[in-house]
Simulated scan of single mutants.
Amino acid sequence: MRRRTFLTVVPAAAAFSGAVWSEAAAASVSAGASPYGPLGAPDANGMALPSGFTGRVVARTGQSVGGTLWHPAPDGGACFADGTGWIYVSNSEVPLVGGASAIRFRADGSVVRAYRILSGTNLNCAGGATPWNTWLSCEEIFRGRVYETDPYGARSAQPRPAMGRFKHEAAACDPDRRVIYLTEDETDGCFYRFTPTTWGDLAGGRLDVLCGLGGDNVEWRQVPNPTPGVLERQTRHQVSAARHFNGGEGCHYAAGVCYFTAKGDRKVWAYDTARQTVTAIYDGTGTLNGVDNITGLRSDLYVAEDGGNMEINIITPDGVVAPIMRLDGQSRSEITGPAFSPDGSRLYFSSQRGTSGESAGTGGITYEVTGPFRR
């Protein structure tokens, strides 16, 4: 049976719905005062942060961290609990060797070691964490694949072709409906939903695409061939009613809402699973530019910029968009992989090309910010 939903672009008062967003949201999302206060002067690493926050560099491309050379072009990332410490995983968006690496931290934030968890893949861009503590690393190439990897380094990575062969970007798990949402980085990319045959096992399942029925009405329809050949019709073109989003990027699920970004549209979208609506909660008219990776903490969203002012912006439930971090002197780079430590006290992210701005990502830098984040 098809589930019918609705696609609209409405004021934030309606868009901020579900358990995450306050019903008393502002009439529109607009630039305002950050709940953390204004940014201060850049520190020695070029990070401008609010008062009470501190930052450090934890890894640089080509340099040893925890006994392992850190990979080029660091991209999507996530954190996983590890005893009293935690692990941060990061993709590498370069061809042929791509893959992903992990850094294991002690409870005091010191590095235990680093190691590879995926190698020999292509342009691993974003991805997503699963409730069973694996990392979905996504290839942003023609007929790209999703690889399920082990952040703890004990099991080998596995390709998951049932999740589709397309230009993958990000993934977000919805444990309530036991599905995984997927974005596609094409100018006419789609928004997908993968339903595993068995929750926790991604070897098989059904891939659906969000479709329009005329007006605002949309529904999920099955993709007939999730793994098309090179000369076959690709997934985003197999269902004529499919809705298209210009440059799908980050994806984040929380409390009944899946948020995803589209850099070409300059929008942050919210798919409300309870109300069965998809709404634009941010339309590119505030301080946030180059919308890209997205994560969340408590009731707040954090969106990283691809270019723009090289900022991470917060979007609060009351409709305020404001920068909480800016990198100076890196205008030819992009911010990638924002993720919070399990206790919410530390935020990790990377500058993919760093101060060099080189397309190969040889100047990549991975950072940590510590402070009184709202949690």
Score class of each variant (00 low, 15 high):
Glu148Ile: 01
Phe191Trp: 04
Ala157Ile: 04
Thr362Asn: 12
Asp201Gln: 13
Ala114Ile: 08
Thr287Tyr: 01
Val9Ile: 12
Gln330Cys: 12
Phe260Val: 03
Trp86Cys: 00
Tyr147Glu: 04
Gly76Leu: 03
Asp265His: 08
Gly62Glu: 10
Gln238Ala: 03
Ala304Cys: 09
Phe105Ser: 10
Val111Lys: 02
Gly212His: 06
Gly357Lys: 04
Thr370Tyr: 06
Gly46Phe: 10
Glu93Arg: 04
Asn225Gly: 03
Glu140Thr: 01
Ala14Gly: 15
Val320Arg: 08
Asp306Ser: 07
Ile180Thr: 13
Ala100His: 08
Cys190Ser: 13
Gly205Leu: 06
Tyr152Ala: 00
Val58Ser: 00
Cys190Gly: 15
Thr370Ala: 14
Phe105Ile: 10
Trp135Ile: 02
Val209Phe: 02
Glu311Ile: 02
Asp176Trp: 06
Asp188Met: 04
Pro74Val: 04
Thr336Ser: 15
Pro151Gln: 08
Asp265Leu: 05
Gly307Asn: 08
Met163Cys: 09
Val303Trp: 01
Ala172Gln: 07
Pro323Val: 07
Ser119Glu: 15
Phe349Met: 05
Ala114Val: 09
Cys125Tyr: 09
Asp188Tyr: 07
Pro131Met: 02
Gly215Thr: 10
Ala59Gly: 06
Lys167His: 11
Arg374Gln: 13
Arg236Thr: 14
Pro131His: 06
Asp43Ile: 11
Glu184Arg: 00
Thr61Gln: 11
Ala100Leu: 12
Gly109Lys: 00
Ala26His: 06
Thr68Ile: 00
Pro42Asn: 03
His237Tyr: 15
Ser137Val: 15
Trp86Leu: 03
Leu118Ile: 10
Thr5Met: 13
Ala274Gly: 11
Thr277Phe: 07
Ile141Thr: 14
Val9Ala: 12
Cys138Ile: 07
Pro72Met: 02
Asp75His: 02
Ser119Thr: 14
Gly256His: 11
Glu186Arg: 13
Thr362Ser: 13
Tyr253Gln: 11
Thr187His: 10
Ala44Pro: 00
Phe194Asn: 05
Asp300Glu: 12
His244Trp: 10
Glu305Val: 01
Ile314Tyr: 09
His71Glu: 11
Gly344Val: 11
Val112Pro: 01
Leu288Arg: 03
Gly364Ile: 09
Arg116Lys: 07
Gly76Cys: 09
Gly37Met: 09
Cys173Glu: 09
Ser299Cys: 13
Thr316Ile: 05
Val291Ile: 05
Ala12His: 11
Tyr152His: 07
Thr285Met: 07
Ala26Asp: 12
Ala81Lys: 13
Tyr282Asn: 04
Ala129Gln: 13
Leu327Tyr: 04
Arg353Gly: 02
Gly229Thr: 06
Ser331Ile: 07
Ser101Gly: 15
Ser51Leu: 07
Gln238Pro: 01
Val65Lys: 10
Arg193His: 00
Arg3Glu: 15
Thr261Pro: 02
Pro95Gly: 00
Pro42Cys: 06
Val291Ser: 00
Pro342His: 02
Glu93Ala: 13
Ser359Tyr: 08
Gly247Met: 03
Tyr302Asp: 09
Trp86Glu: 08
Ala14Ser: 13
Thr134Phe: 05
Gly40Glu: 10
Arg374Phe: 12
Gly120Cys: 11
Asn217Pro: 01
Pro175Met: 01
